[in-house]
Amino acid sequence: MLATSPRLRATGLRIVQAIPVVIGVVVISFLLTRALPGDPAVYFAGVAADADSIEQTRVAMGLDKPMAQQFLIYVGDLLQGDLGQSLSSGRSVAEDLAKRLPASLELTLTALLLAIAIAVPLGVLAATRPGTWVDHLCRVVVTAGVSLPTFFTGILLIYVFYYLLGIAPSPLGRLDFIYLDPDHVTGFYLIDAALMGDWETWRGAAKQLILPAGTLALFTLAPIARMTRAAMLSALSSDFIRTARAAGLSNRTVLFRYAFRNALLPVVTTLGMVFSFALGANVLVEKVFAWPGIGSYAVEALVVSDYAAVQGFVLAMALLFVALNLVIDLLYTAIDPRIGFSSK
């Protein structure tokens, strides 16, 4: 089976190649967290701790042991699937990630779909009609998107749509407190609520998503729209398009079958970059909308030197990136048959 399917074999190979990366991430994240300034034992011993109680806390946290031993304990736990206990949230890191990663993914994916839905047509239109109002609109949206910081856009949207107009729901996280969380299946509220057939909760969750996803979409659509426009322009000016036009193919066929498909490759590359970037960088959106995501979790853990939580976050992100790169490579081959795995 493996021998016969080059794609499967290549996928397997890529996963094997990811192993040293993950090992490196484990070592580096362990060392980096230890290099952070601050003494977690002092922090977690509490407001009025004296030297004795700080020492008791240090022993309880296992930080009195030599570093090599701490590392062996960490790796041993990791092999059993135990990511450790977060001190700042008081729960196991695995539990925290399982709860918060879907929240971030749901927000980021919704924002990205929204951004694609706006940016790709906008980019294509701008490329086919350079110099017209569509092109200028594209330029304005793109410039605004990159130059407005997300926390500002977020607060502005809250001010206009919630505070002044009162049409947006209260920015209180994933679900207003009058709803109960849907049963946990995927952790994506929209999917879980749909699986339960609870459309009232689904609408509640969707309403909560609109403003934060809009904020993030405004930020992410800029690189996508620019890349679409540039790639379409270069595709449209290439020889094969001239040939296709000369052969009398319809405008639509030329535009979508030949130009757009060729322009998709750089767009997909950008999408991958934007996605990974947005997932880590939406901390500010999470803070403004009280969204219980992974970004604010990681930042809070960093601030208090919560080693286990930081390591868990870095590891989860590393695995996510490995998976993401794999998906993008597979997408390449689907879009452009000339790219094969056999050549790699």
Partner: peptide, 8 residues
């Protein structure tokens, strides 16, 4: 409810 942003 926990809302980190003072503006919100």
């Amino acid at each position: 409810r926990e809302v980190p942003s003072p503006a919100t």
